[in-house]
Simulated assay, not measured.
Amino acid sequence: MNELELKKLWQITNDKLEESFVIHKKNTDDITQVKVYNILGSMKPIKIFTLLVGILWVGIGVIALSSIYLNSFSEANRFFLFSASIQMGLTAMALFIYLYQLITIYQVDITDPILRTQEQLVSLKMSTLWVNRILFLQLPVWTTFWWNETMLTDWGILQWVVTLFFTISFTFISIWLFINIKYENRNKKWFRLIFRGKEWIPLMKSMELLDQVEDYKKQNTSA
């Protein structure tokens, strides 16, 4: 076998290996996209349920509060009214994010490039963190909605100390969580205690799958 034949044989072998690699890469991408699509699909029921319950809760709350503001504001318990208004406002903000997440999940397509899916997953991750930050800001108002004006005249020091202790503690916790709920803390125990179940784990599994594909591509490219 002469040198020309050897070069030709080498070129044919090299072309077949490259073709095989391209086919394998495409199959890997397709399988990963299908897995990610199915995993994200498992998040739809809980998102829809939460959104429907939240809309019902906020709808009833807004109707009730509007009636109080319009018809009996002067007689209403200001502490309850303002606490409930803050709670409803924060819940409404969270619902808008839930709606955005649901739309994003439905937009994920198994035919999209992996880069596009990664962008959607990052968006879902960040919005999930923001939903929890916003909802934890409600903690203080759950300790003040039952306050009333008679507390100012009838309560003793001990009662005020206990009440303010809980309100200040819940305020501190809500602010601390708002600041510290970020992806960098995902491996900490308190973070894993909060973020679990079908609103977080499927998202992390999807991101891990796409990261594995990217690592595989880099290894084969460098090789």
Rank of each mutant, 00 (worst) to 15 (best):
Q33G: 04
V36S: 00
Y37T: 05
Y37D: 08
Y37S: 06
Y37I: 04
I39V: 14
M43R: 05
K47T: 07
T50Q: 13
L51C: 12
L51W: 05
I55W: 10
I60F: 15
V62K: 06
S66Y: 04
I68Q: 02
I68A: 02
I68K: 04
L70C: 12
N71W: 01
S74N: 12
S74K: 11
R78H: 12
F79V: 01
F82E: 05
I86G: 08
Q87P: 02
G89Y: 05
L90S: 07
T91L: 15
T91G: 13
A92R: 01
M93T: 15
M93E: 10
L95E: 03
L95P: 07
Y98A: 05
Y100C: 00
Y100Q: 06
Q101R: 00
L102E: 05
L102W: 11
L102P: 07
I103R: 08
I103N: 07
T104I: 09
T104C: 06
I105G: 01
Q107M: 08
D109V: 04
I110F: 08
P113E: 11
I114T: 15
L115E: 13
R116F: 02
R116N: 09
T117H: 00
T117S: 06
Q118R: 14
Q118W: 06
Q118K: 14
Q120W: 01
Q120S: 10
L121M: 14
K125L: 11
L129A: 12
W130R: 15
V131Q: 14
V131W: 03
N132G: 14
R133L: 08
L135K: 14
Q138D: 09
P140T: 07
P140N: 03
V141W: 03
F145N: 09
F145E: 07
W146L: 11
N148W: 10
E149V: 15
E149Y: 10
T150P: 00
M151D: 05
M151F: 08
T153G: 05
T153V: 14
D154M: 07
D154A: 13
D154I: 08
